[in-house]
Amino acid sequence: MSSADPVLAVEQVSVRFGGVQALDAVTLSAEPGRVTGLIGPNGAGKTTMFNVITGLEAPGSGRVSIGGRDVSGLSAHKRARLGLARTFQRLEIFGSMTARQNVLAAAEFRNGWARDRTDAGAAADAILDRVGLSAVAGARADALPTGLARLVELGRALATQPSLLLLDEPGSGLDSTETEALGDLLLDLAADGMAVLLVEHDVELVMRICDTVHVLDFGRRIASGSPAEVQADPAVQAAYLGAEAGAA
């Protein structure tokens, strides 16, 4: 594992929805300068985990720390101000604004709470360029195809200058060239010292850029390790492909 102190530590987090255990005592961490993968079949609890980390969902039990500070009980916007940003699987773009205004707004939010007087417009333009949205900067965000809208969310998250970035399926809706560019970008961000936690179904992308992969299956962490280790794990294969015994 990494020698760096984790910027995110999730300890024994459990969430229950009615009779369904969405997360069951899950522990995981993310370190600066690394891309950590969080994978698992549909309904394994990955998005719930993101909601718990970002403060949109309260866990039944367990602890979340960001940068060594226990953030349990802290509201979503206060957690964000500690350097946490995310994207959403079900898009949460500012639909009635342009792509550039989306990123600009986030940069302005950040300048507001960080008491920073730098030029938000220049910062937004730099980010649009970096995520490859300059060409569609003036287009209304909800008129963009899903893949590009996801990049708008990524750009918006980057505009808050996070130290910890949570990405919920950023690659879905992108073609293979765009996915490759996204992978390069994420590696770049990690090289800058950012901690990236990535939920993604594109196995190739996960294999290529993740240092560590955690696997969730019905709310439990069933495996952790390097991509190759995880891939070869029989428990992971069973989680993804099911057991033939079921139909015997």
């Binding site: 079949p41 549909n42 993804y240 492909l241 099911g242 057991a243 033939e244 015994a245 079921g246 139909a247 015997a248």
Partner: peptide
């Protein structure tokens, strides 16, 4: 396993099934 047992017996009764599944082997 229990649910798929039921799926098998429904198929036996002649119901036509279209099944979406993440667990390919199952």
């Amino acid at each position: 396993a229990e649910l798929y047992e039921l799926v098998g017996s429904l198929a036996q009764e002649g119901i036509s099934l279209l099944l979406v599944e993440q667990f390919a082997r199952t």
